[in-house]
Structure formats: C-alpha cells, structure tokens
Amino acid sequence: MADPLPGNIALQLQLHPERFDPLVALAAWQRSLAASGAEPAAAEAHFIGRVRGVTAAGVPLEALELEHYPGMTEAQISRLAADCAQRHGLRAVRVDHRVGRVLPGEAIVLVAVTADRRGPTQRGGQELLEALKHEAPFWKREWSGGVGAWVEGNTAF
C-alpha cells in the first residue's frame, strides 16, 4: 500500500468500498510513519471531507454514489500526490477516498500530509485536495426521493 514517490516520499492510498473512519486511518498512518524509523516531520496537515445532507438543489440527500475508474483513479492520485509532494517538499502523503454508496455525515475523503514547515504542509495538503477534486476520475450521483442525478463539477471552494 505504501508506494515510494520521487524524492523518497511515501504515499499511502486507499479506496474504500465501505464506510471508513478517518481517525482510524490517520492513526494507522501515523503508526506506520513512526515504525519506518524516519525522523518525525515537524508539521502535519489533515483534511476530512464528509457528505452534506442536502443536494446541490437544496433538497434532503438520501445518499451520494461515487463511481470511479478502477486502475486509472489510483494511478492518477499517485501522479497528483508525487507532483504535489515535489512542489511543496512534502515527506509523506496519505489519501483515503470512498467509492460506492455514501450516506450523509459519512467521511468521503481524507488527505493528510507531512513536511518540515506549516506553510508548505497546509498549502500542499490544500493543493492535493483540489487536484483530487478536479483531476482524479471520480463521479458523484446524488440520490434524493429515489431519483439519482449526476453531479457535473464541484461545489464552491
């Protein structure tokens, strides 16, 4: 699961077909970083995204369905992470993303990064999240009242 990226950056990437707990994923990541024997990074930034309870049209959401392109989605996230890590000097990257049917309030994405300083850490994490939203092949369908509607594009930053 941990793939070395250019510059000895460790990437851990997991797509979850079932509900996942982002805090459990973070704890596992931190344990694996500690076990690697590398000097702990001074800065770490985390982002957890959850499914909101209303659709883009403002009506109650029953569930969000996440489709992806098996193989390309993972490869594309690895490329985006390597690129971002190189630009911001990140040391370690962890990405978890849901696929399948996700309920309101459930975690849909976790992006966690480490680096030596808070600026590059926060900027690198934010940039990787935005890259995921626009450049990794995922498609959302909102289910409401038993009817599904594909979401074209992303919510406001």
């Binding site: 990794a136 092949p137 498609w139 074209e152 992303n154």
Partner: peptide, 10 residues
C-alpha cells in the same frame, strides 16, 4: 480509450 464526463471527486 475512455470518455470521461466532468469529474466530481473529493
């Protein structure tokens, strides 16, 4: 070859 509609991830 794959045709991909607008992406909506995250």
């Amino acid at each position: 070859v794959a045709f991909l509609p607008p992406i909506s991830g995250g």
